[in-house]
Design a binder for these strands. Structure first.
Lengths: 143, 143
DNA sequence: CAGATTACTTGTAAATTGCAAGTTAAAATA
DNA sequence: TATTTTAACTTGCAATTTACAAGTAATCTG
């Protein structure tokens, strides 16, 4: 019953507003982070992440992200119970957004994971290329 | 009663999570957009923006953003009713985040404002420098 | 000084979130 | 093969948040 793309029009045509309507909540970007930076691909992995999302919220967010074409699903050929969640190209294109949000918080808030921040600061383009490369490799391994 | 900085600890130490907890809602980044890109500085200006935020939500968001040191307030010396809202350095440092979110939505969703997108695409660094420069000029004019 | 403006607050209904528990199908184990 | 476990959800309900409408206090304008 979930349509492939939520077609209720955005509140305005502003591109920032579109991003906010799609990603502006307390969980979506964290799920994308787990997929992009930690390589998580399954429901239970997302559940076990640091911030402890509730099961129903996770299900809703995954459905929404899929609806917007940010994540895609496939059945695990080796285990009929498992669903494999992957980032689409559209999802991967959020890498610069995540990166800038990480840099901003690292600069202005008390946060952890200094290795990641160092790596990004040292060479942002190289970091983005590496993230993208890892995604390409995982994609070829999967599909 | 509003403390200067919300000191309830974040759900995790992840810098992305900090950004999400501070900015991850449907309004905060739009208010920051109006200040950064449209030069809005007052409560009524924010209310009249495209997406039509409710008055109580706006008041809450402004309080929160002020609490996090993203916006600052001052009385208008020429009109005792008016409060002037400005972005702090911390708020201005969100420019790369907004920029990447604009680019992402422009690439993947049906949005408007092609001039802005063109300008960013043509030379991102130049765009960011210009936004920053405008802020500096407004700051000197104000304080 | 009467009316308008600015920056809010308050009340209330609707929607969303969070927590706990349950369900279904498939796989692993005894 | 029967039983238990696992994975991916769904359901019910209370608590929180959001949205809409209306009201208020201080200031300004004619």
């Amino acid at each position: 019953m979930s349509r492939s793309h939520p077609r209720t029009k955005f509140r305005s045509g502003c591109p920032l507003n579109a991003s906010v309507e799609i990603l502006g909540d307390r969980w979506s970007l964290l799920i994308i982070r787990d997929m992009m930076l930690r390589g998580f691909r399954s429901y239970t992995r997302f559940l076990d992440s640091y911030e402890h999302i509730a099961t129903n919220i996770l299900a809703h967010r995954l459905k929404k992200l899929k609806g917007y074409g940010i994540v895609a699903t496939q059945q695990d050929p080796l285990d009929g119970r498992k669903v494999i969640y992957t980032l689409t190209q559209k999802g991967m294109d959020l890498a610069p957004v995540l990166t800038e949000m990480v840099l901003w918080a690292a600069a202005h808030e008390d946060t952890q994971n200094p290795e990641l921040i160092c790596r990004i600061k040292k060479d942002k383009q190289k970091f983005l290329a590496a993230v993208r490369q890892k995604w390409l490799e995982d994609s070829s391994r999967t599909s």
